[in-house]
Simulated assay, not measured.
Amino acid sequence: MTVLMMFAACYGVWQLTMLASATRTVRMPLLVLGVVAGLYGAGMLALGLQLVYTRGAAALTGEPLAEIVRTASYTTDPLIEELAKVAPFGLLALLHRKVRAQWGLTDFLLLGAAGGAGFALVEQLMRHSGEAANAAAGGPIEGWSIMRGFSFLQVWGLPDLLTSWLPTPVSYVDAFSTDTPSPETNLHLVWSALAGLGLGLLIRGSALQRLAGAALILFPWLDHAAFNHDVVDPDGAGFIGALAGPLAFLRHAFWLYPLLALAAATYLDRRTLLAGKRAWPDTLTAMTASSGS
């Protein structure tokens, strides 16, 4: 089961990587390392910060810990998680000038997606690892199902994963649904891809592009918070509650978000590359020039 979940996480990153071949500079081994960074680095960082915040808030306010955790799940926790997922490679880019100069916006997007995929994997493993013994008989082709009342958890088999777009490792399926179940889009992968592009714009972009970058980092937090709000307190009010409906409607096109972001990153990277070639034509090697002709 775990191997299939790992495959699902890496497969979504690979799909985006193939579409970004024209402008990316990072290679697949580095992106797999990005998944590992999301799995161990971002996952543990977010968990540690959440523990510190919730326990600290409970100690300072005297509120029940359960209530603090419930409220944090759709307020501070999404912010902590979205920042933690892009923190490893963002810190690397800020500390190393060579890395900062080499990575384009496409690279930031892909690394963000890799970190999000790893984070989604560790979240699912921590949440469901103890239920593996309850899984119905399955295998790598048909996957595994775990009954939970009137629904079941589905770890998808290879045919379902290979024919899906950015598949999530585990899905919740209604046992009485008449629709044919299929893997949903990996939420954390998409959120982090957008945040990764936003970070790239903040580091490499113009003043106007940096504003767009800030918005791309803000949006995943708000969408993540609204998603959690729907789960924890669907009838609640407040700022997040007011946003939950419109953002849930937009989430019908969630699969399209990374394609639009990738198209924008590719366009901006191509424009930068062409401007560089016009400004410094002598930097092209003879082999590159001959292959281009």
Results as ranks from 00 to 15, higher is better:
266 T>K: 04
48 G>A: 07
183 P>I: 12
147 M>Q: 15
74 Y>N: 08
8 A>E: 11
131 E>T: 05
77 D>M: 08
34 G>A: 06
170 V>Y: 06
83 L>V: 13
4 L>G: 09
168 T>Y: 03
292 G>W: 07
134 N>R: 12
112 G>H: 08
92 L>G: 07
13 V>T: 12
186 N>P: 08
126 M>K: 01
285 T>K: 01
241 G>D: 05
274 L>R: 15
14 W>L: 15
293 S>I: 04
6 M>V: 15
158 L>M: 14
177 S>R: 05
43 G>A: 05
233 D>C: 05
91 L>T: 12
90 G>T: 10
156 W>P: 13
151 S>P: 01
109 L>Y: 01
183 P>H: 12
37 A>G: 03
250 L>V: 10
236 G>E: 00
255 W>C: 04
166 L>F: 14
91 L>M: 13
246 P>C: 04
205 G>T: 04
191 W>M: 14
116 G>N: 11
115 G>T: 09
202 L>I: 14
114 A>P: 10
89 F>Q: 06
6 M>Q: 02
200 G>P: 04
119 F>C: 07
79 L>I: 11
267 Y>E: 05
40 Y>K: 00
144 W>R: 06
251 R>M: 08
170 V>Q: 09
221 W>A: 14
11 Y>R: 10
100 R>A: 08
54 T>N: 12
66 A>K: 00
180 T>A: 15
160 D>N: 14
140 P>N: 09
282 D>W: 13
248 A>W: 07
228 N>K: 11
266 T>D: 12
93 A>R: 03
36 V>N: 00
252 H>V: 04
122 V>K: 00
182 S>Q: 15
22 A>W: 07
78 P>E: 07
127 R>E: 11
119 F>A: 11
242 A>P: 00
184 E>V: 14
2 T>M: 03
33 L>V: 14
215 A>D: 02
5 M>R: 05
195 A>S: 15
109 L>C: 06
58 A>L: 01
143 G>K: 05
101 A>W: 00
208 L>F: 05
273 L>F: 08
188 H>I: 01
289 A>P: 00
77 D>H: 01
9 A>Y: 04
244 A>E: 06
169 P>K: 09
268 L>I: 03
11 Y>E: 06
119 F>S: 09
185 T>D: 11
173 V>A: 09
117 A>M: 12
180 T>P: 02
68 I>Q: 10
149 G>C: 01
251 R>T: 13
200 G>C: 01
147 M>H: 07
216 L>P: 04
68 I>F: 02
5 M>E: 14
211 L>M: 09
197 L>Y: 10
140 P>G: 13
91 L>N: 03
12 G>N: 13
193 A>H: 08
210 R>K: 15
261 A>M: 07
257 Y>F: 15
261 A>Q: 06
163 T>E: 13
44 M>S: 15
159 P>G: 08
215 A>T: 04
8 A>R: 11
127 R>G: 01
164 S>Q: 13
162 L>S: 10
